[in-house]
C-alpha cells in the first residue's frame, strides 16, 4: 500500500490526536498543540530531536503521564472511535493500545517468558490463547525462545528490546506505540528489529506509531511521518516526501545539499532559518 492510497482511504483513522497540549508540574508546557492521525494498519513515524516531545506525545496517548506529574490540558485523543484522554492505561491496553517504553523497561528479575506473560495480564484466564500467542512471539523472535528462562535483567540490550516488543504483542494490541527502539543498539540489530516490526505490522495487522531519533531508519520503514520541534508538529508528509525534502535532509539526515559547508556557516544558517518562520 502506498501513502497516496492511504491518504485517500475514507476509513476513519485508528488514532486521532487533536491539538493536544501537555503540561508537566502545572507549569512546564511541553506540547503546544500536537495533532496527528494514524491510519488502521499503518506505520507512522514521529521524528524529532531530543526534547522535541516525541515521548511525551506517546505517553499522552497511552496515558502514562500521570506518574510523571504531567497532564493533557487541551485537545482530545480518539482511539478506535472512542475518546480516551481520561482512560487509564489498563483500560487502554484492553482497548488495544499499548506502549513499548523508551529504554525497554523489562521486568529484570522476571524471566523472559514471565515478562512476556505479564503482557497478557489484561486478557485474564484465556490460557489457550495466551499459550498460542507465546508461540507466535517466539516465532517472531527466535532469540527469545533460547533465552526464555533467563532473567531479563541479564539479557543483552537487543534481547531486552525484543522482549519488550514481544511483551506488548502478548496483549493482542491493535496498535503499538513504539518509543525509540533503536536506542543504544548496534545498527545491524536495529535493522533486524525494524524488519521484525514490519513483519508483525503486515502479518498481524498491528498498527505502529513509532517515535525515533534515527530519522534514516524510521523513514525507511514508516509510510508517513510527522516532525516535531519544541512541542509542535512542524512538518508532515509521506515518507518519500520527507526523505527528499531539503530541510529534512539537512536537519535530520545529515545530508547537506550543496557540497561541504564550513561549520560556521552551518551554525549561522541554522540560527537564522526556522520552521514556520
Amino acid at each position: 500500500m502506498t501513502a497516496a492510497t492511504e491518504a485517500s482511504a475514507p476509513a476513519a483513522p485508528l488514532l486521532r490526536v487533536n491539538n493536544i497540549e501537555v503540561i508537566y508540574d502545572h507549569v512546564i508546557l511541553v506540547l503546544r498543540g500536537v495533532s496527528l492521525e494514524v491510519p488502521q494498519g499503518g506505520i507512522v513515524a514521529l521524528l524529532g530531536a531530543n526534547g522535541a516531545g516525541k515521548t511525551t506525545t506517546l505517553k499522552a496517548i497511552s496515558n502514562l503521564l500521570g506518574t510523571e506529574r504531567g497532564e493533557v490540558t487541551k485537545g482530545s485523543i480518539e482511539f478506535d472511535g472512542a475518546n480516551v484522554e481520561a482512560s487509564s492505561p489498563n483500560d487502554l491496553v484492553k482497548r488495544g493500545c499499548i506502549q513499548v517504553m523508551e529504554g525497554r523497561h523489562c521486568f529484570e528479575h522476571l524471566t523472559v517468558e514471565e515478562n512476556l506473560l505479564t503482557g497478557a495480564f489484561t486478557r485474564g484466564g484465556d490460557r489457550a490463547g495466551i499459550q498460542a500467542d507465546l508461540e507466535m512471539v517466539y516465532n517472531y523472535f527466535p532469540r527469545l525462545r533460547e533465552r526464555r528462562t533467563s532473567q531479563a535483567g541479564y539479557t543483552s540490550g537487543g534481547e531486552q528490546q525484543m522482549c519488550a516488543i514481544g511483551r506488548a504483542l502478548m496483549s493482542r494490541p491493535k496498535m503499538i506505540l513504539l518509543d525509540e527502539p533503536s536506542m543504544g543498539l548496534a545498527p545491524q540489530l536495529v535493522e533486524q528489529i525494524f524488519e521484525i516490526v514490519k513483519t508483525i505490522n503486515e502479518n498481524e495487522g498491528v498498527t505502529i506509531l513509532l517515535a525515533e531519533q534515527n530519522t534514516n531508519i524510521a523513514l525507511k520503514y514508516a509510510r508517513y511521518g510527522y516532525i516535531l520541534e519544541s512541542g509542535r508538529v512542524v512538518m508532515e508528509g509521506s515518507a518519500d516526501m520527507l526523505r527528499n525534502n531539503e530541510d529534512v535532509k539537512e536537519f535530520y539526515l545529515g545530508l547537506g545539499g550543496e557540497g561541504r559547508k564550513s561549520f560556521r556557516d552551518v551554525k549561522q544558517y541554522r540560527r537564522r532559518k526556522r520552521w514556520l518562520g
Binding site: 497511552s62 492505561p89 487502554l92 523497561h105 523489562c106 505479564t118
Partner: peptide, 9 residues
Amino acid sequence: DHQAALSVG
C-alpha cells in the same frame, strides 16, 4: 518497575 507494569496494563 512501576511504570512498565502500568504500561502493560
